[in-house]
Nucleic acid binder design. Structure first.
Lengths: 111, 111
DNA sequence: GTCAAACTTCGATGACCGTCGTACGATGGG
DNA sequence: CCCATCGTACGACGGTCATCGAAGTTTGAC
């Protein structure tokens, strides 16, 4: 098994956002930890590793949350070395659910 | 006890949408039955009684869902006779979370 | 080749919430 | 009055999900 094949084995499936039901998207976004992730990715000008976002949950829980966001078509994930980088899928998501991400990011969490 | 006082006793508390946390709003809207209610109220040109919206859940469950929507500042409820009428609080909600309700209503449930 | 860093996987646990049936309350018509 | 209609209140139950720790995997650095 070559090194690149190993790398390939780590590539997780990324659904087309247009095939993701609204229900799944909302279930992903209803969790405050996952919204923190989305907000962090939105605020950053570059892709972020899982570890650099402060989430106040354990690593295994964080992995779970990133998984849910990926399955909902909200983020893209790829490995660079031992890190896994995350990127918000803005344009694709906007095409699927126009205005939804913008409205959510603009919405204040508290008051 | 007068009749109007009795009526007054049935008036449920309506929070100001501006005081409702985003978390609570999303928890309200993540349930598909509650989204059906919101969509029905949006589509109607008049206020709707609880009973006239097809929900495929029991009456007690329906009451629960209307309660959650009211507490989230999404609907207004008032009695007329034995019926309880429901109205979407569009403008107030729009002021609190601009674009959110529109994006959700515009979003297709399935594909 | 050894080791640390960064995530993942797995199973377990605990809490929450959507659901229901039943009993109850309020209203208006005959 | 009586009664049907419409909705509410209350427990109970069940499934789902966020959480964790422990063990495993992959990578790169030395």
């Amino acid at each position: 098994m070559t090194r690149t094949a190993q790398q390939g084995r780590r590539v997780a499936p990324h659904p087309d956002p247009r095939t993701v039901p609204l229900q799944q998207v909302l279930e992903a976004l209803v969790d405050p930890v996952r919204r923190r992730i989305v907000r962090a990715l939105d605020a950053a000008d570059e892709d972020l590793a899982c570890g650099v976002i402060e989430l106040s949950v354990s690593k295994s829980t964080a992995t779970h949350h990133f998984h849910v966001l990926r399955e909902a078509g909200l983020i893209r994930q790829y490995y660079v070395g031992t890190s896994r980088l995350n990127a918000l899928r803005r344009e694709e998501f906007e095409e699927s659910f126009p205005g939804l991400l913008d409205a959510l990011i603009a919405a204040p969490e508290h008051r």
